[in-house]
């Protein structure tokens, strides 16, 4: 759905915001675009939606060249910019009607506007002026505006920024619903790594305009996991720890709160890890201890992000 090839952007003052970006976003993806402040996220989004022309490289959206076919591209994308402005004197309905008329000057679709207001939970506030809206309501109205042209892709720049947990949850649910029910491709930039973890299936991490990582969240988690840690909860954790340390000679066993953590040696492959799990289970069952939970520790998106950034910095230094 979105393909960029060797995209770079250098501003008139000589500052290069994005270098050699190669993105690949599939149809139906919820794609997270991560990076620290000044990494080039907003510049990238503006290049993708055709507001900025790339200095080099090509961008194709739904097979169309964004630079050459910018008007056509604008018809199939919806954008919720980071600093989204509103005409505070308009009501929610007037605001949507206005953008509807800009996209479809020939005829207004009031039923679709009703549907959008319903979908973003603003149906009962349709006649309230935007100036009286809370931040969360404005953000939902912004999403409704981005959907006014029935887009295939929606770009959201920091959609949950400044929202309280309830507001964040509402936006997350709304976006997930749009993706699941309508098959909308969603491209999000966010500082809220939790948002990305909860919503996205694929991510890209960018730093100083350079892409550091791209892939599914699972792929990145696996890529950055140095050691494999088994998480275990038994009917008697204290006895279980003693047993595993003394009888099974597993040195990396520790009790953390309600769970036992068994860190496997880094040289072990998948079969070796399975063998360790088998040994642990057999030992516990033979001593009459029950296993209440057996799982493994995975990296959070935050861990992945910081590790990726660190790796990017090292790469930059060595380069």
């Amino acid at each position: 759905m979105i393909e960029t090839s060797g995209v770079s952007k250098t501003y008139h003052n000589g500052f290069t915001a994005v270098r050699e970006l190669n993105l690949h976003v599939n149809e139906g993806d919820i794609f997270g675009f991560l990076g620290p402040n000044g990494a080039g996220k907003t510049t990238t989004i503006r290049m993708l939606d055709g507001l900025l022309a790339p200095t080099t490289g090509t961008i194709r959206i739904a097979g169309m060249d964004v630079t050459a076919q910018s008007t056509e591209v604008k018809k199939i994308i919806g954008v919720v910019p980071e600093s989204h402005g509103y005409y505070y004197w308009m009501t929610a309905r007037e605001y949507l009607q206005y953008f509807d008329a800009l996209f479809h000057p020939e005829k207004s679709d009031s039923k679709y506007i009703d549907l959008l207001l319903e979908r973003v939970g603003l149906a009962d506030k349709h006649n309230v002026s935007v100036g009286q809206f809370s931040r969360g309501m404005k953000q939902r109205l912004g999403i409704a505006k981005a959907l006014i042209n029935h887009p295939k892709i929606i770009f959201l720049d920091e959609p949950t920024l400044g929202l309280d947990p309830k507001g964040q949850k509402e936006i997350q649910d709304l976006l997930r619903g749009l993706n699941e029910n309508e098959g909308l491709t969603i491209f999000i930039t966010s500082h809220m790594l939790k948002d990305i973890e909860v919503l996205c299936n694929r991510v890209c991490i960018i730093k100083d305009g350079l892409m550091i990582e791209q892939g599914s969240i699972r792929e990145l988690q696996d890529r950055y996991m140095d050691t494999y840690t088994i998480l275990l909860q038994s009917s008697d954790n204290l006895r279980a720890v003693k047993l595993l340390k003394d009888a099974e000679h597993l040195p990396q066993v520790s009790l953390c709160e309600e769970r036992i953590e068994i860190t496997c040696p880094s040289h072990l492959n998948a079969e070796g890890i399975l063998a360790v799990k088998h040994r642990v289970a057999t030992a516990l069952f033979s001593e009459g201890l029950d296993i209440l939970e057996l799982s493994h520790k995975s990296l959070s998106m935050e861990d992945v992000f910081f590790k990726a950034i660190e790796r990017g910095e090292k790469k930059a230094v060595s380069a």
Partner: peptide, 17 residues
């Protein structure tokens, strides 16, 4: 006022030339 009110981006993202 469109730039100061951050509404310019939304306008430029419409097919209106």
């Amino acid at each position: 006022s469109e730039r100061e009110g951050h509404t310019m981006e939304s306008l430029l993202l419409t097919p209106v030339s």
